[in-house]
Computed example of a mutant assay.
Amino acid sequence: MNMKIYCTLAFAALVIVSTPGLARAASLPAANTSTDPDAYKLLAVHAAYMPRLAHNQFGRPLVLQSLETSRRVSGDIYAEIDTPFETVRKSFANPRNWCEVLILHINTKYCHAGIGADSNRLSVRVGKKGAQDINQAFALEFAFRLKANRADYMAALLTAPAGPLGTADYQFELQVIPLTSAKSFLRLHYSYAFGGVARLATQGYLATAGRDKVGFTRDPIGAGKYAYVTGMRSVVERNTMRYYLAVESYLASLLLPPGRQFNDRIERWFDATEQYRLQLHEMDRTEYLSMKKSEYARQQVAIGR
């Protein structure tokens, strides 16, 4: 990209991010749209976040944001990854590969991408953190849509109209652009809507088994002190991070022969989550690896591989 254009976008993005009242402007097309406006917009975000990508509490080039409204929670991760754009693009343009990612999450018990006319549908079961019979897990039906698949920009979207405990309108979106021949920049978005039942259930969990659970964002509490966010935002932050680490683990495993990839993924995912034990620790390594091997074997039988 022309350096003058890049600097213009970087300056515009920095103004948008740092100036109250201009946040909505971030959704506007970039100044120069001669090639791909969507790629330019994401590149502008990357330029704006470069200081935070370089220095943060995560120990990796990553920015996490979350938002809670009266009826919805969302999490967004922006990250640089050491994977070529073409690898990311080809991987996530295929709905079957999303199942290879989703199954790594501790609460995902099953994922099956359809075939033929149903190839853009994913049947997912989610449940408790431990081993669970598939018939006792909640069913979600995701629709996959490839929003863009171009030479310097890819965007894929998963949506599910309904989920457990009255939750609804689940969305996963992955956007990615190349930075160099070996590095990419992505945005992973995860969100869902909730009603009174879901809020009460979450509050009940957070008051009992989840009473020590916190998120990653630290909010000011006065006198120069900060506290980790709790409540619904903490839930969406933890799960957004878990899904991001699953994306990262999946992509890293592609360097290995196919027969070794799944074991590498689950080991990488668990080790990555343990870097954030305060937020993400749920079980020991042996238990997680055993559970995921069993769930994955069950998934492969269902798929008919």
Rank of each mutant, 00 (worst) to 15 (best):
residue 70 S to W: 11
residue 226 Y to R: 14
residue 150 R to P: 01
residue 256 L to F: 06
residue 172 F to K: 06
residue 266 I to Q: 11
residue 62 L to K: 05
residue 35 T to L: 08
residue 283 M to A: 15
residue 198 A to L: 07
residue 33 T to I: 07
residue 69 T to V: 07
residue 4 K to A: 11
residue 177 I to Q: 03
residue 168 A to D: 10
residue 229 V to T: 14
residue 251 L to W: 04
residue 179 L to D: 08
residue 42 L to M: 07
residue 277 R to Y: 01
residue 30 A to F: 01
residue 14 L to W: 15
residue 43 L to S: 08
residue 160 A to L: 02
residue 115 I to K: 15
residue 103 I to C: 01
residue 208 T to V: 10
residue 248 E to A: 14
residue 56 N to S: 05
residue 177 I to E: 05
residue 3 M to R: 14
residue 267 E to A: 09
residue 83 T to N: 06
residue 146 L to C: 01
residue 274 E to I: 03
residue 48 A to Q: 03
residue 25 A to N: 12
residue 226 Y to S: 09
residue 265 R to W: 01
residue 272 A to N: 13
residue 182 A to N: 15
residue 168 A to L: 07
residue 173 E to M: 13
residue 55 H to Y: 10
residue 74 S to Y: 06
residue 200 L to A: 15
residue 81 I to P: 04
residue 158 L to T: 00
residue 182 A to G: 12
residue 207 A to Q: 08
residue 172 F to L: 07
residue 239 N to P: 09
residue 236 V to W: 07
residue 75 G to Y: 00
residue 156 A to D: 05
residue 121 R to E: 06
residue 284 D to G: 05
residue 57 Q to E: 12
residue 294 S to F: 09
residue 280 L to G: 04
residue 11 F to P: 00
residue 84 P to I: 06
residue 70 S to K: 15
residue 246 A to Y: 04
residue 164 P to N: 08
residue 107 N to P: 03
residue 42 L to C: 11
